[in-house]
Amino acid sequence: MIEETFAEGKSAIHRSNPPLRTALAVIYSFTVALTNDTGALILALFFSMGLALLARLPIKALLKRLGAAAGFLLFVWLVVPWTYESDVLWSFGPVAVSAEGVNLCWRVTLKTFAILTAFTALAATMHLATLGHALHSLGVPSKLIQLLLLTYRYLFIIETEYQRLYRAAKIRNFRPSSNIHTYKTFAYLLAMMFVRASERAKRVYQAMKCRGFDGRFHTIGNYSSTVWNPILCIGVLLVSAVIAGLEFTS
């Protein structure tokens, strides 16, 4: 099932202003992504962990999410040190581990975890509807926001529909394996989802018209100001500036 694991909460970050949080997440993410200084990246990782603590993210769920990212990192660690051409750190018969390759792997690992943790703490702590409103107030075109919110609205329905179709296939003794029958079954299942989605979209649009949809989108979100807004703002901007500074001086 699809869930918004981190969206509910009463922490300082959950209560602060969503558009501000979104903007800070964008600034901080790009700052870290463009940094190559290892010291600065270690600072970033610690700051991101601090944000995660401040947001009181459930540790288990967070680690599970970071674990998914770690899968590809593991792959990078398995490939890059042996194939990156630079000074040899140590060699083992014909196999040589490159010093620069290992450094690079460290930097990528630090960056991935720092950015994803901060993103989870700042942006994934709001419901998608709130994020939509936040992006809208930051200047993202309203058509795109409507598309995003409609997707969000019908995602769970489409997913349930998939589960239902898949259950029906299973009841008829469908066992997936690598053969044409399996692919055909999945293809028809998917095609049925496309067809039903298209039918549903028509009904939805008719319903929208009936309710006077005129292409505009009204935001009802109204966020009270808390003392955390300026603290969060100054904190994230300050750390971003320090990281950028370290990057330039290194």
Binding site: Q146, L147, L148, L149, L150, T151, R153, Y154, L155, I157, I158, E159, F194, A197, S198, R200, A201, K202, V204, Y205, M208
Partner: peptide, 8 residues
């Protein structure tokens, strides 16, 4: 609505 549904 069609596009949102396709995205879903």
């Amino acid at each position: 609505a069609q596009a949102g549904m396709m995205a879903a």
